[in-house]
Design a protein around this nucleic acid. Structure first.
Length: 222
DNA sequence: GGAGCGATGTCCT
DNA sequence: GGACATCGCTCCG
């Protein structure tokens, strides 16, 4: 192997990765890999998607965050240690995946909103109830879709340590770095709706809701 | 292609 | 009882 070749073997992110504030973690998660092992229909292969869209939710002073209602049974994972999966059920039919941030006792989190499917696309389509040849951008371009594609449920994954080799849901890095990150407003919320806490990889085709650059009004590029 | 809307479980008031 | 960090289907242009 030439010396200049990068080692692209995915490496599990350590729990310290999730210690900073949610807006920083949300940006740093872009380009990382969400890995699902031993799921339904993929006992022998991993389902892998690259994270291309995230949203930050603050534990304090963020009315849109679930933790704004305080520490309850439902939100206890958010107040726990960093790097844990917070999976909740929304609108009676969809699951959404967050990763807890900040030290134990603080409730920041990052919502994973879209993946670029890299491996196990046939199993993802099957999990989504789509034909085997379904367009890759329909598989995981939304928080509910990606949970369905990877077989992520509250019952199986809420509270799971995403930094443990023993977990069947993990987050890893393969050295990929996005060239450009764009910040926009968060999707589907009514409170604190104007804060630019949604982050996406500029130009990526696998995001959930497209963003339209408005002439004269520059979107924050990070 | 875009707006409108129904489905439907769980939690908090 | 109402709100909800969604999705996919209709209907209309």
């Amino acid at each position: 192997m030439p010396e200049t070749m990068l080692d692209t073997t995915p490496k599990l992110l350590p729990s310290g990765f999730f210690l900073p504030s949610p807006d920083l973690v949300a940006q740093q998660l872009l380009g990382k890999l969400l890995v699902r092992r031993n799921g339904p229909g993929n006992e022998n292969v991993a389902l892998i998607g690259r994270i291309v869209e995230t949203e930050a939710y603050f534990g304090q002073d963020d009315p849109a965050a679930h933790s704004a209602a305080g520490h309850t049974a439902r939100t206890s994972v958010l107040f726990g240690p960093p790097g844990r999966a917070y999976v909740y059920f929304i609108y009676g039919m969809h699951s959404c995946l967050n990763v807890s941030c900040e030290p134990d006792g603080r409730a920041g989190s990052v919502l994973i909103r879209a993946l670029e499917p890299l491996a196990g696309l046939a199993a993802m389509a099957r999990n989504r109830g789509l034909p085997a040849g379904a367009a890759p951008r329909t598989l995981a371009s939304g928080p509910g879709k990606l949970c369905q594609a990877l077989g992520i449920t509250r019952a199986a994954h809420n509270g799971m340590d995403l930094t443990s080799t023993a977990s069947d849901l993990q987050i890893a890095g393969d050295g990929y770095q996005p060239e450009e990150i764009v910040a926009t407003t968060r999707i589907g919320i009514t409170k604190a709706a104007d804060r630019p806490l949604r982050y996406l990889i500029a130009g990526n085709q696998y995001i959930s809701v497209p963003y339209k650059p408005v002439p004269g009004k520059q979107l924050p590029v990070i």
